[in-house]
Amino acid sequence: MRSVLQPQVKGLGDLEPVALRTGQTADLNEIVDALAAAAYARVELVEKRGEFAVRGGILDVFPPTEEHPLRVEFWGDDVEEIRYFKVADQRSLEVAEHGLWAPPCRELLLTEDVRARARAPGRGAPRAR
Rank of each mutant, 00 (worst) to 15 (best):
R2Q: 11
K10M: 05
G11M: 00
G13M: 11
D14R: 14
D14T: 14
L15Y: 12
L15V: 15
R21D: 02
G23P: 00
T25S: 13
A26C: 08
D27Q: 12
N29I: 01
I31H: 04
I31A: 05
V32L: 14
A36E: 12
A36V: 02
A37T: 05
A39P: 00
A41K: 15
L45F: 06
K48F: 13
K48R: 15
K48S: 12
R49V: 11
E51G: 02
A53D: 07
A53H: 04
V54S: 00
G57C: 08
L59V: 10
L59A: 05
T65P: 03
T65Y: 02
T65I: 14
E66I: 01
E66N: 15
H68K: 13
P69S: 09
V72P: 02
E73M: 10
E73A: 14
F74R: 09
D78G: 04
D78S: 09
E80P: 00
I82L: 01
R83E: 03
K86H: 14
K86A: 12
V87F: 01
R91F: 06
R91W: 04
E94W: 03
E94G: 08
A96K: 00
E97S: 08
G99I: 00
L100C: 08
L100S: 04
C105F: 12
E107S: 07
E107K: 07
L108V: 14
L109N: 03
L109W: 04
L110Y: 09
E112I: 01
D113N: 03
V114K: 07
R115N: 11
R115Y: 07
R119L: 15
R119I: 05
R119M: 11
P121K: 08
G122T: 09
G122R: 05
A125R: 11
P126V: 02
P126G: 04
P126D: 06
R127L: 13
